[in-house]
Design a protein around this nucleic acid. Structure first.
Lengths: 253, 253
DNA sequence: CGGGCCGTTGACACAAATCAATGTCCGTGG
DNA sequence: CCACGGACATTGATTTGTGTCAACGGCCCG
């Protein structure tokens, strides 16, 4: 992992690694929702890209910045966010391994929201030009990328409903259920997974304040769900789904 | 307009009209953000479709329904919405003339949210198959549709910020500024336009209650903005932008 | 050892929801 | 033509959920 390491600006490191296994992750994501031909699959695996290591707490894409790469998350948790004029932050999306948090910049290179690493992250930066060419040459890839954008946007619509019309318990519970489902760890009984976020970040995601997140999580303990040190433990998935008003259909899994 | 009219289920009427001028509207929308070749432009204008007349207050696409058409709005205002378990409604998008509120169903035919006419509406129903074929044959069209989806999703992200992190005045003001900009009626001085919504619908859009919308609009009157009988009148666009924390960049106009 | 950052708790303030009553408009049916 | 009912607008009184402020404790890291 240390051969050819090369320092960038703010603690971000670029390393040279084999890309194929990394791109396989992306290919799996695409084929889980779309059908690709063999030629198209190979085109995906042949995409160019640089691997970057980014420390926790780094705003590696800033608002209004023009970018020429898309980031494929190989490891870590990343938040897309925006701010209001008081400087209060709202996280508008969470992205995990296999996601492309800034896929939309391919069609709209000026970033309309910023990206922030909630944990240490490894990212494969794929040039826009390569993605655009692959999409132009292969209708299947084009449609797969489009479909990915659509799932993203469906999640956003759910978040609007969540923040706009649910109380604090349902709001946080819904977020936890969504992340459990996206991580693929949910099962009838006990569910647990790492979600490396602070209370403040949870608050910025749900449109609450950190203090109130604490109170709400205390209330959720009554139903057997705990969040401690970035570890979520859901004792009873069924009742949690009920509290959260959660229906996984929108995630297309 | 009455030749060949043909009744459907709930007061929805289908009429046979010339499609080309209608599709020109769609083409204009696409070319305002993307570049298409002459062949691609013609392919758009040659899309098939039925014109439908839909009365006000009609849920013409319901949750979980599987659809095989996409709706191009020729006239009217349409809301995309979802409900929480108390039955409280949250409007997640507003769509105007030239929009395709259910473009995403091309890649994901089972509706993840419902559509409701806020006014009488005219719609051109374009079969998914035709759009898919056009996209597969013409990379430019494919990218234009993708870009349209992305703008939609950018608006959603702004709505999350709006509902999550802004007070009621800024929230409503932001919505009014967004709609003024999308209607293309904003100018330095007085701005006015029709927005055929009730207080309840405004409330469902902003995550507030109808009573509080009334109070908030009363407060906004102090700044010279009124909303009466579906008519928005903004005396001073500059101060309204300030109250709304509005920056039109995200709309890509 | 000391200074942040984060978590935690309590007291209090306030914005928005809820409840309630009344008014207005409009379409419908007697 | 008028009486009626329903949907929407409007206002006031009251409650409540959430925000704000403040203090303290633990923990990590320099």
């Amino acid at each position: 992992m240390s051969q050819g390491a090369h320092a960038c600006d703010t603690g971000v490191f670029q390393v040279l690694t084999k890309r194929k296994p990394d791109l396989q992750l992306f290919l799996n994501r695409l084929t889980s929702r779309s059908v690709l031909s063999e030629r198209e699959k190979n085109a995906v695996l042949d995409l160019p890209g640089d691997t970057m290591l980014i420390p926790e707490g780094n705003d590696f894409i800033r608002l209004r910045e023009t970018v020429e790469h898309t980031s494929l998350i190989l490891h870590g948790l990343i938040a897309r966010f925006d701010r209001n004029q008081n400087g209060h932050r709202q996280i508008t999306a969470l992205h995990i391994r296999g996601d492309m948090p800034d896929l939309h910049t391919v069609a709209q290179p000026r970033a309309t929201c910023a990206l922030h690493t909630l944990s240490f992250a490894t990212i494969l930066r794929v040039p826009h030009s390569a993605l655009r060419n692959a999409a132009a040459a292969h209708p299947g890839i084009s449609q797969a990328l489009w479909r990915d954008t659509i799932v993203d946007s469906t999640i956003l619509a759910q978040w609007v409903l969540n923040v706009g019309r649910r109380g604090s318990q349902a709001r946080i519970a819904h977020l936890l259920c969504e992340m459990a489902t996206r991580y693929g760890v949910c099962q009838p009984n006990e569910v647990s997974f790492r979600l490396p976020m602070t209370y403040e970040q949870l608050a910025d995601t749900t449109g609450l304040t950190p203090v109130h997140v604490v109170r709400t999580l205390n209330a959720l303990k009554q139903s057997g769900t705990t969040f401690e040190n970035g570890m979520v433990r859901i004792k009873d998935w069924t009742t949690m789904i009920e509290i959260a008003e959660f229906d996984q259909a929108y995630l297309q899994v």
